[in-house]
Amino acid sequence: MASQTEAAVRPTTKKEKTTINPLKSNVVVGSLLPVTLIIIWEMASRGGFVEPHLLPAPTTVLEEVITMAQEGELWGHIWITLYRVFAGFLLGTGAAILLGAATGYIKIVERVLDPMLQALRAIPSLAWVPLFILWLGIGETSKITLVAVGVFFPVYLNLTSGIQGVDRKLIEVGRMYHFTALQQIKRIILPASLPSFLVGLRSGLSLGWMFVVAAELLGASEGLGYLMVFGQNTSAPELVIASILLFAIFGKITDEILKRIQTRTLKWQDNMENAS
């Protein structure tokens, strides 16, 4: 039944399907399940099977988003959240590159630094919030710092293990050419640890999104996370769902950007994805 409705609702994609092989297009295959679920949800709401004050129909959520966008208030929230994520991401990645490279290359730094960082990693993200607010105030600094903490650990861990996992056999090739330490790093260790580093960036980014929600839920007057709290307090589930949706969309977009960079820079890798 659901698939019948789908065919009726989306005649245009149906046409596309015939021109580009539908089973090979990831977009089409990937959207099948969510689209079906949304249609079921919409029908359930219209039919009165779910309470609208708990779960409003997708169209209601969409209307809410469009109204907010037209009134202009939405952009400010999106902008500030994006700003926090990116600033935190850059800060966290920068710190992770410095410390991760140092622990990866230099044995003594690893022995001094790594145990402490591993211990800090065990602290749940939300536990930082009160401390950061106390230290840095409730302004942007504390939120960006929290995001940076979230981004830091995955990037740091992946970079360190990437560097330590570089094939000794390749390093020996460099030694045969009497490379200096700097040349070894630049020409062998860095490119060889790039795959692991990029994996770290992607999981760092997703943690960054998670931490920005935490930061905004707990003390913000702007941002998508604040919008969720506001929706909760004013009993407006469409606002909460709309925020979740926007988080999903921006999270997906930013991850897709990193993923494209990853595939492009790692096309030399001999793995399943590059198999032709």
């Binding site: 056999k169 390749l170 020996e172 090739v173 062998i188 490119p191 060889a192 790039l194 030399w268 890798q269 001999d270």
Partner: peptide
């Protein structure tokens, strides 16, 4: 070496 040991990221 016994193995080619080429850098996989270079052509």
């Amino acid at each position: 070496f016994q193995e080619p040991r080429l850098m996989p990221w270079l052509n």
